[in-house]
């Protein structure tokens, strides 16, 4: 059926919650009517929190046979913006507002070969795709990357369901993913031009894959990715944003976005997607004390390297000396001097 983009909000009941990995909790929502959910679909959920009602998107991991129960999986972020902590606190019987399954990440039909690449919680977006491709008897492989084995949700079930088609890459076991080797193998295959790669994972993985895909001349449109699972290269921290022309200076705390902070400061901002895709929220960067953590997919790698613009809905700044996520010597506490970004808005 045609893509259905109009959210229909409804009351849903939490019927089951359980941990499926370190910091990852499975939450099953029951709907009044069956909810057709295609591979790649997500639902939007309203989460009451200390800062008001937050709206978050979660992939549909699987559904009950009668289509009334949809399972999500929620990663408790280290610096939760309130959303994931509230989701982890849910107990069976809780009633939430949620939409029907929405589709931004549709699985194509008829590719010669499919590669599904998931990093961490990104598995939630591609697990259903793997199931669909198996049912179609398509040629697919599922590449699942994680930091540690206990942090990888559904790993055993996926191994059982997909056998040799699954390859697990675990950083702390020394089997981390070699992105170049994966892309080389795709490009060397005679079906390269008809191979689709579906990707959901942290922004560093996404950036590496996008760059490598482009460098190898693979068709841009065959690289498919879901963005709402994006995390940055650095853990979020507070930073300062300034607009000298308007005399605005405000602090963006780790739990909110630059776009939200500017709106709260009374700056009239334009936006559409609020997930780093459309570019409508971009601002010009006039000066920078610290580093930019570009989390959008609107700007190209070259544009990001210039640091002259950023997408305020997702991108952030961090203090210059902050180590990247995953670096061994990451300090547990944020630095004392926050980054300062000086911008101009349209």
């Amino acid at each position: 059926m045609a893509a259905d983009h109009t959210p229909r909000w409804q009351d849903v009941t939490v019927v089951d919650t359980r941990d499926v990995a370190d910091r990852i909790r499975r939450v099953v929502l029951r709907y009044d009517a069956p909810q057709p959910a295609r591979a790649g679909a997500h639902v939007d959920v309203e989460i009451p929190s200390g800062e008001g009602v937050l709206t978050r998107s979660y992939s549909v991991v699987d559904a009950s046979d009668d289509g009334r129960e949809l399972a999500l999986s929620v990663h408790l972020s280290a610096t939760s913006r309130g959303g994931s902590a509230a989701m982890h606190a849910l107990a069976p019987g809780a009633v939430l507002r949620a939409t029907q399954p929405l589709q931004n990440f549709p699985l194509g039909v008829g590719a010669a070969r499919y590669v599904l690449l998931a990093g961490g919680i990104g598995i939630t977006a591609v697990a259903g795709m793997a199931r669909t491709l198996a049912a179609r008897r398509a040629d697919y492989e599922l590449v699942y990357v994680g930091r540690t084995r206990p942090a990888m949700a559904y790993l055993d079930a996926l191994a059982l369901a997909h056998g040799d088609r699954l390859s697990a890459h675990v950083d702390d076991e020394g089997t981390g993913l070699d992105v170049d080797a994966l892309l080389d193998s795709i490009a060397a295959d005679p079906r390269a031009a008809a191979t689709e790669l579906y990707l959901c994972g942290p922004i560093r993985l996404m950036d590496a894959v996008r760059r490598g895909w482009e460098n190898r001349g693979l068709p841009a449109t065959n690289l498919r990715f879901e963005t709402f699972g994006n995390s940055g290269a650095w853990a979020p921290q507070d930073f300062i944003v300034r607009i000298p022309r308007l005399g605005v200076q405000t602090r963006v705390d780790a739990n909110s976005t630059m776009l939200e902070a500017l709106e709260a400061a009374g700056v009239e901002m334009m936006f559409d997607c609020r997930k780093g895709e459309c570019g409508l929220c971009q601002v010009a960067v006039l000066d920078l004390d610290g580093r930019l953590d570009h989390r959008d997919v609107f700007l190209s790698a070259d544009e990001k390297a210039q640091d002259s613009r950023l997408c305020a809905c997702v991108s952030r700044a961090v203090a210059a000396d902050t180590p990247r996520i995953g670096d061994v010597d990451a300090p547990p506490t944020p630095p004392s001097e926050p980054a300062v970004v000086t911008i101009e808005v349209t």
Partner: peptide, 8 residues
């Protein structure tokens, strides 16, 4: 007028 493709 942009270098990337919106994935949606």
């Amino acid at each position: 007028a942009q270098q990337t493709l919106n994935p949606s």
